[in-house]
Design a binder for these strands. Structure first.
Lengths: 332, 332
DNA sequence: GAAAATTACGTAAGCGCTTGCATCATCGCG
DNA sequence: CGCGATGATGCAAGCGCTTACGTAATTTTC
């Protein structure tokens, strides 16, 4: 850290270019409005001074931030990484910066991250988690757009872009029943979404005339490493399940490894179904049957919602159901 | 979006609490300096108005931002996620917000993300990638601390916290030689770090009197899915390798799956060694021999460097070598 | 009990930008 | 040729905070 004099400001550039600060500002934000010869001088001055605009000042003055906050539970083993990666990429491309927050499963942490985001006057907060009343009240007093993704709450705070996890659970149940499975074992993580899928599955499975499935609970996030314990649970049971319903493809992968390690063949001796359609689902041997969620679509809708919001228009719908697709592969 | 009147400001709170704005500001930044009875009134006023400080204004006035930018190539399949997750967690805990940037492998993207970060006057930029001259010049004119992690450039721009990838490659070579392997196959990604490890491996392997290893090149990031092609490469060779050196544990995992799928036993028929000591390395069957990098240590050092910088002290060293540990497990 | 130190708070000058309004040429057009 | 448009720029008032400095009241010290 050399002992720098002080970062050049708009005024320094203006003086150098022999124009007013206002003109430089206009040049920066909308080059078309300044005369070409002036623009040339300004460009030279910027080059010469090494000027980098102070976004803090700019955002304060213009009352907008071109920043978006993304709140997710985890980075490692996250079902959302693919979608997040897309969103972050597109946001950056459209000139927004992304502030990231890891909420874990703690409500307090979420609250304080929302507060921090609001404090920086982000244009939007994208959240994968449930929102507390506090979040609701903070957000609704603000000018920030709150976007919930990967689920569809009954009455979203701002905009929700996702799908019904209950329906996903239901469809998995139907699918397994159609394949003739008799004794599914359901692995559920301690998250609202996973609970919803479980509920959808259990309800439908029993509606189809079966006995309630056996189940295991794992903590968040649903990882590869949980497989060992889950598999042990299964081996200990009197009536062995014939298929395992997993909350993520990584867990499914783990189960396949465990099963094979124990000499079982997948799917012949034990079926395994994942969730999220992670790229590994199609790459594993056997390939993993999974539920695909169109992360790219979600990202696009999110971008559209943000664009609307930034331009002052209102996003057409408060809820966008992007659906899901069950992808049958080899593991079931 | 209700048509809100306008967010409450410090002045609104001050008026409500019947004190000056300065006092409220002091209360917010250093509660100890205001009298308790005043504090009570201020708290009530904040509660009543639903005031959320405007960090944009605060940061501008105080010329600090309590924001840190983290630049990584990818979110999916990243070797760094574990470290990043830790860092983000600690930063948030210490009151810093994190801006995230995905650089991919593009230098331009990196440059513009650095510019964006500087524009927001972040306190520090943490980067896992190589830094261009442009980055160097932008950063060194600024008051922002540039921290390179996971590697140790000869002459870091700011502070570097990492280890020698050449040494890691060398140690892997020694280890495999000591285990009696004869024909390693090296899988290298198109990244500077991976190249360094490759170089270290090749140099040492040949110094030990062996013929140069065979190799495959994969693109970034080094994923599970690359295994299929790499394994095909291997099967096509006249003299089959007896061990595969992978750039990540995910790739190693993929190779194990492929090898087993082809009826080979790991490690008896083919050894596999990973890199990064991801949690799956210890959970896979067989468990994966890998190189552990102490992400927690890196995160701590990063935090320390940032703390120093924010408090105006200088960080004791420009380079911190956190080393690495080869962890022998079952796959080799 | 007076001087010195301390505590609690207000005043006001910025921080570096944006933007509505005013100004002044220049230009088209009847 | 005169006048409203149009275009390019400057002026100056903020945006919502922080903080050096100053002041008045209270406490300490000898």
């Amino acid at each position: 850290m050399p002992n720098l004099p002080k970062a050049p400001t708009l005024n320094d550039v203006a003086r150098e270019a022999k124009v007013s600060a206002a003109t430089v500002s206009r040049f920066l934000n909308n080059p078309a409005v300044v005369a070409e010869e002036t623009a040339v001088r300004i460009r030279a001055a910027i080059e010469l001074t090494g000027y980098i605009p102070n976004a803090l000042a700019g955002d304060l003055a213009s009352n907008k931030s071109r920043m978006v906050a993304v709140l997710i539970p985890h980075l490692e083993h996250s079902l959302f990484n693919d979608m997040i990666e897309r969103m972050v990429g597109e946001m950056t491309a459209s000139g927004n910066n992304v502030m990231i927050g890891l909420t874990g499963t703690s409500r307090d942490r979420t609250d304080s991250l929302v507060r921090a985001a609001l404090s920086r006057r982000v244009d939007a907060i994208i959240s994968t988690g449930p929102a507390s009343d506090l979040v609701d009240s903070m957000v609704s007093r603000s000018r920030t757009l709150f976007i919930q993704v990967w689920e569809l709450p009954a009455d979203p705070i701002g905009v929700a872009i996702g799908f019904s996890h209950v329906d996903a659970g239901r469809d998995i149940a139907r699918f397994l029943a159609s394949r003739g499975y008799q004794r599914p074992h359901v692995v559920t993580a301690d998250s609202p979404r996973a609970q919803n899928r479980r509920e959808g599955f259990f309800t439908e499975w029993q509606a189809l005339g079966h006995a309630p499935p056996s189940e295991s609970i794992v903590d968040m996030p649903t990882r590869f490493g949980h497989a060992r314990r889950v598999f042990a649970d299964i081996r200990r049971m009197d009536k062995r399940p014939d298929v395992v319903v997993c909350g993520s493809d990584h867990l499914a992968q783990g189960l396949i490894v465990e099963a094979q390690g124990a000499g079982l063949r997948v799917p012949d001796d034990l079926g395994v179904i994942g969730f999220g359609n992670n790229t590994i689902a199609g790459e594993m041997r056997p390939t993993i049957t999974s539920v695909d969620v169109d992360g790219a679509r979600i990202a696009r809708e999110v971008m559209a919602a943000i664009a609307c919001h930034q331009e002052g228009r209102k996003f057409p719908s408060r809820k966008v159901d992007v659906g899901f697709r069950l992808i049958a592969r080899e593991s079931v």
